[in-house]
């Protein structure tokens, strides 16, 4: 479906692992192409429940979370993750369609560490992902 992501960003350090959680197929593929080009390993989930499941199943360095999703929205997912000892520490960035300050506050209250608004510029996404994961160099 997609190319095998680079396993190693450098010989010294394995690639940082990012889980992209968004119900839009073009959106997921876009984040994947941008982040893989920057050396991240990317996995995808299509809604909040699946994102929660995948975050539990494997360790990630960063979650990129859409807000409006079926089954479980981004806020609800983040609140659930922040209560779960197994995964509560993983950094998360929410990406919303609304440039509403109240929405940004809700995202941070739900447990997001950073907040972006769609459509996200590729450079900004890469920069934020680097900032939140401390890599790849």
């Amino acid at each position: 479906m997609t190319e095998a992501p680079p396993r190693e960003a450098s010989a010294a350090r394995p690639a940082r692992r990012v889980l992209v959680i968004d119900d839009g197929i073009t959106m997921r593929l876009f984040y994947r192409s941008v982040l893989e080009a920057a050396g991240f390993h990317v996995e995808e989930a299509t809604n909040g429940v699946e994102g929660y499941e995948k975050a539990l199943a494997d360790p990630f360095d960063l979650l990129i979370v859409d807000i409006n999703m079926p089954k479980m929205d981004g806020f609800t997912m983040l609140r659930a993750i922040r209560r779960d000892r197994a995964v509560l520490g993983v950094p998360a960035v929410t990406i919303s369609t609304e440039a509403d300050p109240a929405d940004a506050r809700r995202a941070l209250e739900a447990g997001a560490n950073y907040y972006l608004v769609k459509p996200v510029a590729p450079d900004l996404l890469t920069e934020v992902a680097r900032l939140m994961t401390g890599g790849p160099a």
Partner: peptide, 11 residues
């Protein structure tokens, strides 16, 4: 996976 069905349960 429950993720395609419902949000009633916690994984």
């Amino acid at each position: 996976s429950m993720s395609r069905m419902t949000s009633l349960f916690v994984p």
